[in-house]
Computed example of a mutant assay.
Amino acid sequence: MTRSTAIVTGAARGIGLATTDLFLAEGRRVVMVDRDADELAAVAEARTNVLPVTCDVSDPAAVAAMAEAALTDLGEVHALVNNAGVADFGPIDDCSFDTWRRVMATNLDGVFLCSQALAPALKAAKGAVVNIASISGLRASTLRVAYGTSKAAVIHLTQQQAAEWGEHGVRVNCVCPGPVRTKLAMAVHTQDIIDAYHDAIPLNRYGSEREIAEVIAFLCSDRASYVTGQHIAADGGFESTGVGLPALRK
């Protein structure tokens, strides 16, 4: 089956944009979804075979409108990448309920809403869904109670979707990126943080947006036709080290 269409949320930058570019290189038409209208318009203008749709994935009405626009443009939906997310880092004692809900609304509710809205089309096309979680959903870390919890929930939601939609031919998997060398990360990570990550990651480096996108594109392809309900840590081996001290691995 020709896999010719895709929808990517959080597509205006970072992993979402890198994934969009890989899909375009595969010959897909891509609906690029993001709530940052200006940035989305700018990156979409530089690309062909895309449709930019401004949408806040935490808003049910906006998601319904996005799904309608996407289906009108694409006709069929062969892949959905739920990548849109927000982060708010700080001590657990300082995490207000408003902060908790804001993170959950995008990171978890957004995945649920987009998947639900596009489920009929995905079933009709026997499509693939890839949800983007995080290494923070697999192992606890300081300063990210809402973020980590939301991503852990995305991992479980992935399994629920895979278990129920498999009979319709829909595959659902989850990618859990480790530290990625994005512009935002490099702007806020001090050299001490960078060095600490390098020490803790067996490959001794951050990943790139393209490396994460390659995993996503594979899971959306027919090469992964018997893979569903899985979470894959694209993290340079970070998750495999558990809580072990880097010095003890020498």
Rank of each mutant, 00 (worst) to 15 (best):
R3W: 02
S4F: 06
S4T: 08
G10L: 04
G10F: 02
A11G: 08
A12M: 00
A12D: 06
G16H: 07
T19F: 07
T20A: 08
T20H: 01
T20F: 10
L22G: 14
L24R: 05
R28G: 10
R29W: 00
R29E: 01
R29C: 02
V30A: 05
D34T: 07
D38M: 09
E39C: 14
E39K: 14
A44P: 05
E45Q: 11
V50W: 09
L51Q: 15
A61L: 15
V63G: 07
V63C: 03
A64I: 06
A64E: 09
M66Y: 15
A69R: 14
A70H: 05
L71S: 13
T72P: 05
L74P: 07
G75T: 15
G75M: 09
H78N: 00
L80F: 01
D88T: 09
F89K: 07
D94C: 13
C95W: 07
T99F: 10
R102P: 01
A105G: 07
A105T: 10
L108K: 11
D109G: 00
G110N: 06
C114L: 10
S115W: 03
L118Y: 08
A119C: 04
P120R: 04
P120C: 08
A121T: 05
K123Q: 15
V130D: 06
N131K: 05
I132T: 14
S134E: 12
S134N: 14
L138W: 00
L138D: 00
S141L: 08
S141F: 03
L143D: 13
R144D: 08
R144C: 12
Y147D: 10
S150M: 03
S150V: 09
S150G: 01
L157T: 03
T158R: 05
Q159G: 06
Q161C: 06
A163F: 01
E164A: 12
E167Y: 00
G169W: 12
G169L: 05
R171L: 02
V172G: 00
N173R: 03
V180F: 10
R181T: 01
T182L: 12
K183M: 10
K183V: 15
L184P: 03
L184I: 12
M186N: 08
V188L: 06
V188C: 08
Y197W: 09
A200G: 08
I201V: 06
S208N: 07
R210K: 12
R210Q: 15
R210Y: 12
I212K: 04
I212E: 06
I212V: 11
E214T: 13
F218V: 00
F218R: 02
L219C: 07
S221R: 04
A224W: 03
S225H: 05
V227C: 10
Q230A: 13
I232F: 14
A234N: 03
A234H: 03
D235T: 04
F238W: 13
T241N: 12
T241C: 11
T241F: 14
L248M: 15
K250W: 10
K250F: 11
